[in-house]
């Protein structure tokens, strides 16, 4: 039976952000791919990575990538799960896993980038 649930404003911000981050990622990810493969060494040797990592632009680039990519991916994942009916406990668990794993991997990634 149809029941009206939820409250006002429970979707717009994430809907708008998902699209903005998406558009950003189109540039960032495709750009990342070309940069990595234009010069075969750039992504695959320690020296090359080290050199790039010392430039603030690329540092920011990678930080953006990690932050935006993780948020976009996990928000999308949560969106998919939310489409299916789940017991509240299951839904809460999945939400928890998504948030915790997101934070954990963000810390991991940021740590890698900032260690140079």
């Amino acid at each position: 039976m149809y029941k009206h649930t939820g409250s006002r404003g429970s979707g717009a911000p994430s809907w708008v952000l998902q699209r903005i981050t998406g558009l950003l990622l189109v540039v960032v990810v495709i750009g990342h791919y070309f940069v990595m493969h234009a010069n075969p060494a750039s992504g695959h040797t320690y020296a090359a990575v080290l050199e790039r990592m010392h430039q603030p632009f690329w540092k920011m680039f990678d930080l953006t990538f990690i932050t935006v990519g993780l948020w976009h991916g996990l928000n999308g994942t949560w969106g998919i799960f939310r489409d299916y009916k789940m017991k509240p406990a299951v839904s809460l668990t999945i939400y928890g896993i998504i948030i915790l794993s997101g934070i954990a991997f963000w810390v991991l990634g940021v740590n890698t980038i900032l260690s140079f």
Binding site: G6, R8, S10, G11, A12
Partner: peptide, 15 residues
């Protein structure tokens, strides 16, 4: 009306 559809089960469920 917008209040009614501004929920996860409202317009935002449209993909």
């Amino acid at each position: 009306r917008l209040d009614v559809i501004d929920t996860p089960d409202g317009a935002w469920r449209c993909h």
